[in-house]
């Protein structure tokens, strides 16, 4: 199949089955890393950088992964596929908002989605940790310290930047 079409369908699917950028990481990982479209290392860069740079994580993930797979046109196609589902849904909702209040079943669908997404993310976190590089005591140390820092409400992007710098200076 044409790679651009494949990218388009992939991001369409991911954006229909998740509610925000970070939540789409689990599903995206299975589609692009397990599907061998990008390397483990590229995926980690995409997630790390999208959490550091300002603006929507979901779009940045799409941009990075799309670019890594298919250059600029790949990035644009991934972007379009990520924008399309929410735009069409919102246009639909705003147009019928006056008559239909909350569609209960859509809410229930997303509510059922949430625990499954959380579990998928845990599986993904473990795989990224295992294959990402530093798995010795250094990796555990960075991971545990990051986890503690984030649960103490240290801004996530600061934690991510520091971990990457530690990597550049001590692990390369």
């Amino acid at each position: 199949m044409d790679i651009l079409l494949k990218l388009f369908l992939l991001f369409l699917k991911v954006n229909l089955l998740s509610t925000s950028g970070p939540a789409s990481v689990g599903l995206l990982y299975h589609e692009v890393v397990v599907g061998k479209l990008v390397t483990e290392s590229q995926f980690v860069q995409a997630v790390g950088l999208s959490s550091v740079l300002p603006g929507s994580d979901a779009l940045q993930l799409a941009m990075y992964i799309g670019y890594a797979i298919g250059g600029i046109s790949g990035g644009l196609v991934a972007l379009a596929a990520s924008i399309l589902p929410p735009t069409l849904i919102i246009l639909g909702v705003t147009m019928i908002l006056h008559r239909v209040r909350r569609e209960a079943w859509v809410g229930n669908f997303v509510e059922g989605l949430a625990p499954a997404i959380s579990v998928l993310m845990l599986f993904t976190a473990w795989k990224i940790f295992q294959k990402g590089g530093a798995t010795g005591w250094q990796g555990w140390a960075i991971g545990i310290v990051s986890l503690i820092a984030m649960s103490l409400k240290v801004p996530e992007r600061i934690v991510v930047v520091i971990a990457a710098l530690v990597g550049v200076f001590f692990l390369s």
């Binding site: 959490s51 590089g133 990051s146 550049v168």
Partner: peptide, 14 residues
Amino acid sequence: GFVAGLSPAVAALI
């Protein structure tokens, strides 16, 4: 090195 340091932090973030 960048990715090696980033991976555990990204896992924690997830």
